[in-house]
Design a protein around this nucleic acid. Sequence first.
DNA 1: TATTGTTATACTCTATAACTATA
DNA 2: TATAGTTATAGAGTATAACAATA
Lengths: 164, 164
Amino acid sequence: MSDERFHMANRLLFRMFKTTNLMHVTGTAWTASLKLTTQQWSVLGALASPGYDDGLTVNELAEYLFVSRQNVNGLLDRLEQAKLTERVQNASDRRVRFVRLTKKGKAIWSNLSNEIGSYYDAALDGFSDEEIVQFQYLTDRLMTNLLQIREEKENRKKGTIDQV
Amino acid sequence: MSDERFHMANRLLFRMFKTTNLMHVTGTAWTASLKLTTQQWSVLGALASPGYDDGLTVNELAEYLFVSRQNVNGLLDRLEQAKLTERVQNASDRRVRFVRLTKKGKAIWSNLSNEIGSYYDAALDGFSDEEIVQFQYLTDRLMTNLLQIREEKENRKKGTIDQV
DNA sequence: TATTGTTATACTCTATAACTATA
DNA sequence: TATAGTTATAGAGTATAACAATA
């Protein structure tokens, strides 16, 4: 990798880092009265999506958020403490729990989504629709590469285990 | 904000979130043998920049990273424990400490920067130089908006205090 | 008084390992 | 045996508040 390419990559990725940290800080502050972090926005948003009235399993949420299922458990503990979500055991496979919004969770979401909307407006002020799409396209490609990196690492680990 | 715009913004920002989280996880794993996190990459990279041989103050690092100076302190504690950085008191203003790489820190950086380079290669596989620049331009604009949001919040807080 | 850096404290997010219940 | 979820544990990163030293 040439020096110039390194500096370009560094500038981009370092700024993405700082930007996402700012998103977390300013986003969480934006909804400070609701005491919800941006990670929690993601969970509530997923559960509020049309077509998921029955809820999502813990594993599905973990895959959706790209984090471990133990991490999701912690998030759900905090959301349940605030009485916004609940876990319901599935009858046909009793290992599975469906995570759903409570009545209070649905009520909060209708408020929260408005707050998030105004936050997005401020964050993307000056961006045309086309620019947002272009931005997302570039982000997706980076994300795909990173998923590839993660997968290769997991395969190496599995391979090592198999060799033993 | 229209429903469609909300969904576009949501898709973009949520994916940025997940992508940056993946960057942290895969990046930290990439240099696992060195036991360095991506945040620590940033600090070492800043201190290794040409023209900063005398080091940077704690406040300068905090502004550079967009985090509190107390947070920087914690990062520096961990880096000092690994003997990679040191704080040197300034003679003319004895409140100020300049943070510098140690000899070991410089040696590690020459290794680390190679590792980071190969990581960037993998992360940005398939991206043209022009695309990286475009990506960074969009990220910068988002970052600027978020800084504006943060500043407005701080001004509101100050205003409240002044009123009291 | 204001600024620089530090200490103290708290909380969220993240991970991995080991466990229980169920299939 | 394998899978879904949970519990236990650890550590980093983030923040705010209060303090000491210095200007």
